[in-house]
Design a protein around this nucleic acid. Structure first.
Lengths: 214, 214, 214, 214
DNA sequence: AATGAATGAGAGTTCATTCAT
DNA sequence: TATGAATGAACTCTCATTCAT
């Protein structure tokens, strides 16, 4: 409309850049915090990994704690944590179990997931409100959904009644075992045993869920 | 007349045998390190809990790192870690499973065990040699022993062949799940679910190990 | 109403170019180290004299040792140490000797020179590589140059052959004596004797260098 | 006199032992202090070298400062410092000079003398009263005696009038140069040049003291 | 007289945070 | 918005000195 070209884009651009910067900082913080723990991580470490100077962090977050809270909030949000596995990803039990196992062990080998879990174990006491919220609103909800789905499957005759169908936690406990092992011993040292465990885990699910033949 | 600042009496000096003092320091360090992590724990914290002054620690350990190593060494030694569960604690499968569950969940609710596990997860990278040693010499040995015992039980007809008998880790995976839950959410918040999980865990073992009736 | 403890205003923060600040720190360190010795000098002392806070030092040097090494390196560099005396500063022996004595005793009364010499005597063992280098590349070179010049003068008939012309160290030994005396007893206590020594030193040179009359 | 043998000796013995201990401690302190300086020397260092425990030192000296003062007092006492060279150790000038040079360079290579001199240079400010006393009562006295002796020799026609006979310091200045060189560069590195300097020093004395032939 | 565990006052160093540029 | 020098509090560690044994 106006004859001169108004220099608008930069304003919008800057906001975008700021958001992008914050994403980079949070990503850097996730790695650093989960590798070394909150206290042992220095603002310099985060800054270096995010590609700016220490002072620069304070343009985006007002303290180390705030970075941590923001990070944990993101890590605990449903979108980060729960790209859910759908029990009806298949028609036969074998297909369902395969899909579940594949999905579950993908997560266990996902560095971001390991980082998040480690953070949760080592530093959750720093933000009890977030952890409480997450437990109630995210984790329990997720477990309940699985429970519901399991019952639905049972109704369809896909699975039988078993301890697993009553405590959904049992479904993934072996995968958590694998994750913890990786945390303690490292990726390389646990490669082989991960495969064995995964196979046995799948068999366990089959054996416990397979409907009894009449 | 009297000064307002009460100069606290100069803290009774208690001289202990070096050995006894070292034990107290290590005990204090276990609690502090596992509660706050290595870096966030101050020498003052350990000293206060051990009942001496900060400087006094250095009469027994030459650095914070050395306290940590000594502690981890102790925590990873077989005697600390493996009061083993004997599969033949009973004649019927129900008795064996009950004994195993009782033993396993005792450990999960033992503060020292939780502390040690947390230390292992959060700080094992500080002493890779110790962790390597522990994995090879202690953990793997333990798993192998369990495997042997399971096979023995199978020979006796006490249990049947199942994924559990091939991967001994599966036996206790649900208990580890409970332990991690406690670490993240605290003791109080997980009281109830612990019971449910324990019961389901026992059922799972029964169902998977019970010999098929002819 | 007002509190009794006056919270001193937070010490104007003065940001300087890194190079300039480093120069000030090294200058401060020279004074402090040579006055009190390396160990007895506190980082606070250096900081206070350099006009910044203790922590600020670490933006420029990574340790007390590094400050010391940098300082010693500078102090031992030819430019600091050897504004050389030229033997041809005059045409008659008297002029040459006068120039030498003037130059030499200027140094002996120069606080920076005394400071450097004291540092060398008391703390040289902290940086043997620097001292070795200095001896080979600076001091010996300097002595050799003097030797050469002396021979040149002898050829010109300005001086005669004497022990002094063979061991250039003898030329300045009395001045070193004066310097050491000042170090031990202080400036005030040695004012008078310095003059006497200087005069006798000059006479000694004249007597030993004067060509024998045919 | 008495019929039973009174256990007397131990009392006397203990006193002797205590004196002996103190000598050992002072000797240890001389080495340690002169090697590392007062501040950098730990009570443990002295104790170890003296062959007892840190706490044991306090049975003999009430503080580190007191050890230092006692040590310096001893080191500055005439008996330690001045086994004097007698100018009449010979009948010809050559004999006198040889004796002086031999005596002087013996001292320069005596570790105890070097240690004492180093102590004086580096730590004299810690006990100004002792140093003042020493200068007035010991050093100046010594120089005056030498002066007197020189005049006596001159009267005998053994030496001629020269700058050396007016400033006795000049007599030994080159030896001090050698001592300082040893302090800075160490014994090994100065072996060779010490010989050269010593020879030139002797020649210098001969040339300056030899009576002019009629 | 001797030991060595214990104290407590600092020392050097680190680091979250601030601020001049 | 970004930099990095500067601050100051808090940390680990040291060491002269004390004291229970």
């Amino acid at each position: 409309m106006s004859s001169t070209v108004a220099p608008r884009p930069p304003a919008r651009r800057r906001r975008l850049a700021a958001e992008e910067r914050m994403r980079q900082i949070i990503e850097a913080a996730l790695i650093e915090f989960s590798e070394k723990g909150f206290t042992a991580t220095r603002m310099d470490d985060i800054a270096a990994r995010a590609g700016l100077s220490k002072g620069g962090l304070y343009a985006h977050f007002k303290s180390k704690d705030q970075i941590f809270e923001t990070l944990l909030f993101k890590v605990l949000s449903p979108s980060f944590n729960n790209r859910k596995w759908m029990l009806d990803d298949g028609d036969t039990l074998a297909e369902v179990v395969d899909a579940f196992i594949a999905h579950t062990y993908d997560r266990v080998t996902d560095p971001d997931f390991i980082a998040a879990l480690r953070l949760l174990i080592t530093e959750s006491h720093r933000a009890p409100h977030l952890v409480d919220y997450w437990r109630r609103e995210v984790l329990d909800t997720y477990l309940k959904e699985q429970q519901t789905m399991l019952e639905h499957c049972r109704a369809r005759g896909l699975v039988r009644h078993s301890p697993l169908t009553q405590q959904a936690e049992l479904l993934m406990a072996p995968a958590l075992y694998a994750a913890i092992t990786r945390m303690i011993f490292g990726e390389e040292a646990t490669q082989a045993s991960l495969k064995d465990l995964r196979r046995a885990h799948a068999q366990l699910l089959m054996e416990l869920l397979e409907p009894v033949e009449a």
